[in-house]
Design a protein around this nucleic acid. Structure first.
Lengths: 160, 160
DNA sequence: TATTGTTATACTCTATAACTATA
DNA sequence: TATAGTTATAGAGTATAACAATA
């Protein structure tokens, strides 16, 4: 009987601890949930390390990108676009506003709403961040060919 | 000039807030980081909802699976296999032990190490959990054909 | 009465450093 | 001195409920 296939349980006679050099594959490797999580963590670790010099977190970057593409977007629309809850947007935008990268403008027609815009400084920084992000994304997935990368993107977008 | 391509900045004359029905695609949709995150969140939401009745979190499930496949695995080996830090394993196993699903056995040769085993009750529950997990995984990705699912799994495992 | 944004809050996840007991 | 596990702690992420201003 191979070590991997040992069938010791809490009630069986053999219950000595084992430290395999390398644990084998399990059912986890057949689930998209686990594989997605591992892959996502790896790519985010690259991203976070790359962006650390600018102190930009993934959520902040995604907010900047969406605001740039949709100047004047409201906070509720931004929340929906990013798939996060409104209270998170408050903090997210507040931090960006503190750093002078974005700002809120009260809507004249509906004074409850705030339109969000990038500042000039925000646009300048984002231009650099976007390049860094694309580079990081590629370096984190260097095991994939260009064709595989495109294929993976398409499959992921079919999922969500 | 289309609404989407409006180029209002904080310093430009047009800075009224806008609430588009549906924000358009951005650079985010070309990055694996963002797409992986969105897909992973969707699959995890399905998983969490499915497992709620058993009060099992993703990390707990993955620990149970690895322990079952590697009875007697030490906590440090488990941490490495799951890609998490040793302090997290402590809490993870502690909760499983409290619920009578797993237990720690001190290693006789090296009394610093603990081998982890499933209890009979843990094995019984896990058998059900595995079926639920596979079902949830499939339901969360019904947009994919079997071939696409296999392809996606292979690509993800190439990434991490 | 409904909606936008906000505050307060709490709970989970995650990472780090420091401690203990064994080696 | 080094290692396995543990404790303590803090920070980030996330979700909910309740509130203020406005519609």
């Amino acid at each position: 009987m191979s070590k991997r296939k040992a069938h010791a349980t809490a009630n069986s006679p053999v219950r000595e601890s084992v430290e395999p050099e390398q644990l084998g594959p399990t059912l986890l490797d057949d689930t998209l949930g686990y594989s997605l999580r591992r892959a996502q963590l790896q790519v985010f670790q690259h991203f976070t390390a790359t962006m650390a010099v600018h102190d930009i977190r993934p959520a902040q970057f995604s907010a900047l990108v969406v605001v740039e593409a949709n100047p004047g977007v409201t906070q509720s629309a931004l929340a929906q676009a990013l798939g996060i809850d409104p209270p998170r947007v408050v903090n997210l935008i507040h931090k960006l506003e503190e750093r002078g990268l974005a700002l809120r403008v009260r809507c004249k027609r509906d004074r409850r709403s705030h339109g969000i815009f990038l500042t000039k400084s925000g646009e300048t920084l984002l231009a650099e961040l976007k390049q860094l992000a694309l580079d990081s994304d590629r370096r984190a997935t260097v095991n994939l060919s260009d064709a595989e990368r495109t294929q993976l993107l398409a499959l992921l977008q079919k999922v969500y």
